[in-house]
Simulated scan of single mutants.
Amino acid sequence: MKARASVETPGEVGPRQPCPCGSGRRYKACHGAPGGPAAIFVSRPFAGLPGECDIVALRELVPAATATLTLAPEVSPEREDRSVVLCSLLPMAAPAMVRDSGAIWLGLQVQHAFGDPSRDLAAVLTAALEAAAAGEPGIVGLTSDPGPGPRLQDLVDLDAPLDVTVHEGFDYWVADVEGRDDLAGALDQANEAAYPTVRLTQVEHAYWTNVGTKEHLRWVRPEPEDRLLDALARLHAAGEDRLVEDSRLVGMFRAHGLLAPVWDLPLGTGAEAIEEPATRFGEALERALADETPLTASERSARAGLANRQVTIR
């Protein structure tokens, strides 16, 4: 077991730089302002958690997925066997639900934002554990900034891997519910809004999706932004960033301190067809990441183009 230490990751953002929350305002006029939207802003809130990249993907990119969280025994010994399921989205975007069985579902795609999603998740999880212990099923949420407190890194076993299951829709919401007829309409509506998504098996943290008009690969990467941009620029300048014929690296998302490169894929490609190309690209990317020589003129130009095609989520 690793030491139970909270992972401190304050954002190093200049006052005149765009606020990393994605508001479009300068940091000094947003999260950096006295009395701004949050008392704190953590630029990489899930650092140190098992499956950090997948947690970011489930929070921002994947419609329907679950993963079991393992609580740290020292959090409370009697809760060690409590089932805690991390969910991309819960009904009504609920922060958490205590099921009739006593299991806890913790939602990632929520409406509130108080500066540190890891602390917010920990506050919701703590409240849900208390409700479950009291035998009180139902929705648990936040109505205001929870203030200082533990972060998710303090509550879970940092050695336990995060095993993600991507679902075709939201039927898992009601898998343990009898008499589902009154929920059928809402469930159908939710399922229709969920784009087909598959987590690749040969590389980590990469998700294929079909949005109807196009297919995409979205690959959340753990490397620091500058280092990753340099490596991607080297591959782009060398023409080595194409996965399959007519595919194109079109840009990247920035979310919670990580970058997620995005490729456009031709319709009909499918997830299986990009497993091996993604593996080859991953190997090439590792070599590029290890290259410390200065960028050439063409590589610097490619880097500038990639940097200009970033979209910050939240």
Rank of each mutant, 00 (worst) to 15 (best):
G179Y: 05
Q189S: 15
V164M: 07
A193P: 00
V156D: 13
V174T: 11
G138L: 10
R151M: 06
T197F: 09
A186M: 10
G141D: 03
G135H: 09
E136W: 01
T143A: 11
L162I: 04
D145E: 13
A132S: 15
D154G: 10
E168K: 12
V177H: 09
T143D: 06
Q153T: 13
T165N: 09
F170N: 06
V198Y: 14
R180N: 09
D159Q: 14
V140R: 11
I139F: 10
D176F: 02
P196H: 04
D182R: 15
T165F: 08
E192K: 15
H167K: 09
A131R: 15
A133G: 14
S144A: 15
P146Y: 05
R151K: 07
Q153V: 13
G135V: 06
F170Q: 06
D145T: 03
G179S: 10
W173N: 04
Q153R: 13
A134M: 08
A175R: 11
T143F: 00
P196E: 03
P150C: 10
D163L: 11
L183H: 05
L142T: 04
A132E: 13
D182M: 08
L162E: 07
E192L: 15
L155E: 10
D145Y: 01
S144V: 03
L187D: 03
V174Y: 15
S144Q: 13
V156N: 14
D157C: 14
R180M: 07
L152Q: 10
G138M: 08
H167L: 09
L129N: 04
E136M: 05
A132T: 02
T165I: 10
P196C: 00
D188A: 12
G149D: 08
V140H: 02
D145I: 03
G138W: 07
D188P: 00
L183M: 07
G135A: 12
G141F: 00
G169D: 06
W173H: 03
V156C: 13
D176H: 05
T143K: 04
D181W: 04
L142M: 08
V164H: 08
E136F: 02
P148V: 01
V174D: 12
P150M: 14
A134Y: 01
G179V: 03
D145A: 13
D181E: 14
A193D: 11
L155A: 12
E136A: 12
T143E: 05
G179W: 07
D159W: 05
L187N: 05
E130W: 02
P137A: 08
D145Q: 09
P148W: 03
H167S: 06
D163W: 04
A184H: 09
G138E: 09
N191G: 02
G141T: 01
S144H: 09
L155I: 09
Y195D: 11
R151Y: 02
T143G: 07
A186H: 02
P161A: 08
E130L: 14
A134T: 00
